[in-house]
Simulated assay, not measured.
Amino acid sequence: MSEIVSAQTESAVAPHPTGQRSLSPQAREDVAAGIPLSTSRAYSSDYRQFTEWCADEDHTPLPATPETVTEYVSYLIHTPRPRTGRPYSPASIERVIASIRTAHHAAGIQPPETKGARKVLAGYKAQLSVSDDDSDRKHAEARRVSPAVPKTLRKLVATLDRDTLKGKRDAALLLLGHAIAGRASEMVSLNIGSVTRDPEGRGIAVRVYRKKIKKWTTPKVMYGTNPATCPVRATLAFIDALAAEGRTDGPLFLRMDRHGRIAPSLTRRGRTIGDPSGRMTTDAASDVIQLAGDAAKVEGLWRSHSLRRGFVTAARAAGKDLVDIGRHGGWADGSRALLAYIEEDDGWSDSNPLIGIGL
């Protein structure tokens, strides 16, 4: 995210009211470290395109005026993207606005007011929502991943060769990720020492840092009734396999090649790239779920958040309390994001409010 404020735009930064021109390079790096990598990449791409548009239209990107942001959003809703042939979706435009504000924050500058831009966006959403074209209405909705509920997880795990180290890793990632409702960034941050066995043999405890709420949590994972999909058995089998390879500390989820070799060296132009410890990236973790979905031939959009959504869907269907679900999965009490994960049923179940009222 540090590149979001380039040297070129930094020279245009207005002095801070207190006399401090901007954040120091170290402070900007520290700010960037607090932004998830996947978000950072998206923001950097969005902000880069914004600065290019500003250059073409003779606007100043940093600090940007409210009028500049409004003009840019208007441009986005009327300009087809080369890859899709459609303008940006409302969700993508929300991210663009966030990237512009983040760039200003990273430079120590007050972000521009965005009321005008959001009015343009609201009109765009309304226009899409009343269209007779199904594709327009779908374009207005945020694209959501499919929930990996237990029935689906069984199909995904069945595609893995669990006699191999890679198969053991992928099974542990899928099953433990579902059991603790882990985000990809949280899963790949786990170390072998993050998992401890319950002395009474009931399961495992997983110490995980929940980035969204900025807290450490230790969800307890109990043994499952089905050995093939038990997250405890899968995780311990993988840890034992790592120990047999001489790895008893360091990252839990390691990068592997298709032959199952641990953390092969990655180089580009003679330089080592990637995490030197061999830790998986968030994209690689999401790819595990997507590839398993493809192999199982199950319809849907399968990414890392499929595990998190699947956990909520299954727990809610089992009648678990929403507060308990949220605390186990690292959501703040009353989280809107958690409510958004709850899958709506088809309207014909016992949850239909018309049932039992005597009509």
Rank of each mutant, 00 (worst) to 15 (best):
M1W: 09
S2A: 13
S6F: 11
E10L: 11
A14L: 13
P15E: 13
P15V: 13
S24C: 04
S24F: 01
D30P: 02
D30Y: 11
I35E: 15
R41F: 13
S45P: 05
D46T: 03
Y47T: 11
R48L: 12
W53K: 02
T60I: 05
L62F: 11
P63F: 08
Y75D: 06
R81L: 14
P82I: 10
P82K: 00
R83N: 10
R86S: 07
S89F: 00
R95H: 13
S99G: 08
I100E: 14
A106N: 14
A107G: 15
Q110S: 10
P112H: 07
K119T: 08
K119Y: 03
K119W: 05
L121P: 03
G123W: 00
D134R: 00
S135W: 06
D136S: 03
D136A: 05
A140D: 06
E141F: 07
R144Y: 10
V145P: 00
S146L: 10
P147A: 12
P150T: 14
L153V: 04
L153I: 11
V157R: 01
D170N: 07
L173R: 00
G177K: 00
A179W: 02
I180L: 11
A184D: 09
A184H: 00
D198P: 02
G203V: 02
G203F: 02
G203Q: 01
R207H: 08
V208H: 06
R210L: 12
K212H: 10
Y223E: 13
N226C: 04
A228Y: 03
C230R: 05
A234M: 09
F238W: 07
A244R: 06
G246S: 14
R247D: 15
G250S: 13
G250P: 08
G260D: 13
A263H: 13
I273C: 09
G274W: 09
G278P: 05
R279N: 06
T281K: 07
A284I: 03
Q290E: 14
Q290Y: 03
L291D: 12
A292E: 03
G293Y: 04
K297R: 10
E299C: 01
G300D: 01
L301T: 06
W302N: 01
R303M: 02
S304E: 07
R309G: 13
R309C: 10
G310P: 01
G310T: 04
T313A: 11
A314L: 02
A317P: 04
G319R: 08
D321T: 10
R336L: 11
I342Q: 02
D350G: 05
N352Q: 04
G358N: 04
